[in-house]
Write a protein that binds this DNA or RNA. Sequence first.
DNA 1: TAAAAAAAATGATAATTGTCATAATAATCG
DNA 2: CGATTATTATGACAATTATCATTTTTTTTA
Lengths: 226, 226
Amino acid sequence: MGKCEQCIVRELSSLKALSKDELIHLAKCKDSFLIKKGDVIFNEGDVMNGVYCIKQGTCKLVKMNSSGKDTILKLITKGDLLGQTSILTEGKATLSAVAVEDMQVCFIPKNEVLGFIGNNKSFSLEVTKDVCQNLNYATDFAINHTHKTVKERLAQALLDVLDSAGTDTEGYLNLQLSRDEIASMVGTATESCIRLLAELKKLGIIDLKAKRIKIIKLNELKSLAQ
Amino acid sequence: MGKCEQCIVRELSSLKALSKDELIHLAKCKDSFLIKKGDVIFNEGDVMNGVYCIKQGTCKLVKMNSSGKDTILKLITKGDLLGQTSILTEGKATLSAVAVEDMQVCFIPKNEVLGFIGNNKSFSLEVTKDVCQNLNYATDFAINHTHKTVKERLAQALLDVLDSAGTDTEGYLNLQLSRDEIASMVGTATESCIRLLAELKKLGIIDLKAKRIKIIKLNELKSLAQ
DNA sequence: TAAAAAAAATGATAATTGTCATAATAATCG
DNA sequence: CGATTATTATGACAATTATCATTTTTTTTA
């Protein structure tokens, strides 16, 4: 079991507010494990017994609508915490989390998290701030999906992937999502997504090599997303 | 200056977690005032110096998109607190709040709120839970605006108005919004909104008397909204 | 490696929704 | 009260996007 004190991603989340003693305790109670691409971390409706800390890899936060279509609300990466909301409201998970890459995550039991929240004001405040930021993100997402066109939203989705995964040495996005998944981020039909990707390629804004996507004209993509 | 201890709406918000002493202090530091229909409580980008507690009346939480169109994200009514997120993240307001009825509100200065949060675990937790609920609401809103049709969203908007304002003795919604405002809740063009309202009337699901709207077949409206 | 399955791409078409123009009605104000 | 302005309503039309059918390409698996 790794020492949380030395964990690279701790500084990226609310966990940075924990004391040395708390970190030692955390190292003992946490559970570290691997998740394979495509695996479900938890499902909408699941009872959440703790919080997940993402050490490596990316997952998607997904919600299924009444007609069975997925929407990807957000990509979650290194340093993010998952499941805080459910722990705090004592409710079931309102979203599903599915790995889109192989992942390395730590699980922190609910009672330990609540303990930290109750005993460490600074940690408690960080958690609350994090939820506030998630709220701001969700609000912006909602606004974008209300008044932007599919093309504008696609541009934004590509920027989101860039933001959470970065690029390889050749400049290709470091995360390969299926057309279907990109469509679920954008909130459109797969075919529309495919067509618009082809259009962006024709405009020279992006390049497509099979499933790999390279952003060529970042500024144009940004201005497209507005 | 009214006594917060006896305030009718206190039980409806996180403020219910305050102690007697804290309430006495709150009564001294809060500022109570009236807001006229149409008045702006605060604007997107404003520095927030405190939190608003809604004692009476309704306001809309609005965000303007890059092309100048408004989206109404939520109706805020009696017992709700406004501005918590901005206080917690120490950022500026990310939304505007505009009265859609005459209102009675109390303003609680930022430092007092932060004081309560720092000293009262139970209050702090209630505030956090409230933010979590707002996050869940925003997520659902986003999903609805991603995959539901305008008609389904209109049905939902009418249910939202019913929920936050109720009906008068004749069964008409107790809040009169303009067609333009309803369209901003739905995220559609005013004309589309008008047409669909007419369609719902033709179907006998609602009745329209000038600006007044009566829900006749609640269950059908609910199943339309899904 | 061949066969099967899945994913991506493309075309044709339909449906939904937005936009612009204009008319009717209601509200406001001097 | 009449005139002006704002809101609501309706029609015609265009644009965007979804859906369905089919083909091509890629991936998986036997």
